[in-house]
Amino acid sequence: MAQTRNPRLIPRQELLFQALLVLGIALGLLIAALPFLWMAVSSLGTAGMVIRIGFTWDMFNPLNWSLEPYLIAWKMAGISRYIQTTTIYAVAVTVLATTTSSLAGYVFGRLRFPARDFLFGLVLATMMIPGSVTFLPLFILMLRLPLLGGNDIMGFGGHGLYNSYAGLILPNVVSAGSIFLFRQFFRTLPGDLEDAARIDGCSEPMIWWRVIMPLSGPVVTVVALFQFQGSWNAFVWPLVMSSSERLYTISVGMYSLAYGSGSLTSMAELFQSVLLAASVMAVLPILILFIAFQRKFVQGIALTGLK
């Protein structure tokens, strides 16, 4: 078709369409990226400059940039501690949830046993129960777990797993969505390999570890990335589960910083920049992961239809 048309004669309408297209794409890029750029530039402001003047072209001059807000955020506003807590939390959740979910995905996808379909149906059913419904009773459950954190056998007297890493991590040790994803993937693998391993006397966990997992690199990466991203950004659960700053994740820490923690109000001039510097530091690890694994993230969405 292209050959029959005179290439020099692009119809005016076509030209207009192309121009609108480029304009639209550029506008979308601007909308998506501007808050990040604005945040980054504002976070580099020196004392007073950002909050008093707002937008000036001087802000884009690297000579005017200062890392002071970052130093204050890191040292005085406790961001270093929040980042440390968040890292422990996110890594633990990622490792545990990826392991338990892939094991269960293997069992549901490859093994035959009584009540399999019922149990898998149960797992799928839990996918529709969101954290915003369960966080309150879950909080009470963790507070009143028997024999832990000073509680007696009836769950009274102490504070259970409230305000502890165990309390933060335990409810997230498995993800129904990840089980589903693993199961779907494992079902596509050929059965000969594991049969051969089984005849050779390999036990099921060994087959999972030696045969299945080495073939599943891509799906493991996708699940691990989303687990990490989700727990890095988690807010509701860490908010209700932690009472001391020691256990604040980055989101909870920044929330408490934005609303009322007193230590920074004396530096009101710098406060906005410090908050924005903290935001940059909260976003940066995810940004780096995304740049490194962009295709995996996009694949993951297409694979699951989950957001």
Binding site: I25, G28, L29, A32, A33, P35, F36, W38, M39, S42, Q229, W232, N233, F235, I250, S251, M254, Y255, A258, Q272, L275, L276, A278, S279, V280, A282, V283, I286, L287, F290, I291, Q294, F297, V298, I301, K307
Partner: peptide, 22 residues
């Protein structure tokens, strides 16, 4: 381009909420 459009989804709501307040 797709990555840039998608990036806001992955980032912390709290952090980007602070950026938007600004």
């Amino acid at each position: 381009l797709r990555g840039a459009y998608y990036l806001p989804v992955l980032t912390s709501t709290i952090a980007m909420g602070i950026a938007w307040m600004w």
